[in-house]
């Protein structure tokens, strides 16, 4: 738990996430019934490189908290859609852009990028330059081509 520039942040583990989230939502003193945002941060150098961040808000007490979970590449995080249906698309977006999988998500598909897109663009190691339209035509061809040039 930490406090900085007026924001409270809780850091928890993946195993305890659902339990903690449920308590935050149901406890009368916290009552975080509104899930503002779910996002992630990619700290490339770290072993557990992703921070999945849940921004919560209470419409009753009008306070906010941030909940953070760490996850390594390829490790999935439990989904909170059962607690806050609002997290549905937000988790899909995190999956789409970061490649963090959510266990128990009802409909984990890409949301912003095309279904056949390769890679997860918000990762820090994702290249800024790319093949553009070519990738859409046939991603595998392009990957092969790039490897040959390199």
């Amino acid at each position: 738990m930490s406090f900085w520039v007026g924001d409270w942040t809780l850091i928890t583990s993946r195993e305890r996430l659902i339990e903690l989230a449920r308590r935050l939502r149901d406890d009368r003193d916290t009552a975080f019934d509104f899930c503002s945002d779910v996002t992630a941060v990619d700290w490339l150098a770290r072993a557990e490189r992703f921070d999945v961040v849940y921004c919560l808000y209470s419409t009753r007490h009008r306070h906010r908290v941030r909940l953070k979970v760490r996850a390594a590449d390829g490790v999935s995080v439990p989904s909170v859609t059962a607690l806050w249906p609002a997290a549905n698309w937000l988790e899909r977006e995190v999956f789409d852009l970061f490649g963090v999988r959510f266990d128990g998500h009802p409909d984990l598909r890409r949301i912003l990028m095309p279904d056949e897109w390769q890679g997860h663009p918000q990762r820090k190691d994702y290249p800024l330059e790319g093949p553009g339209e070519l990738l859409m035509e046939n991603p595998l061809d392009w990957l092969k081509l790039r490897n040959e040039i390199e």
Binding site: W4, V5, D7, S36, V41, V53, C55
Partner: peptide
Amino acid sequence: ETYHAIESPKGEIGFF
């Protein structure tokens, strides 16, 4: 890091 929200015409617009 911080999250800050304001009221846009459409709803809560937040920046993290």
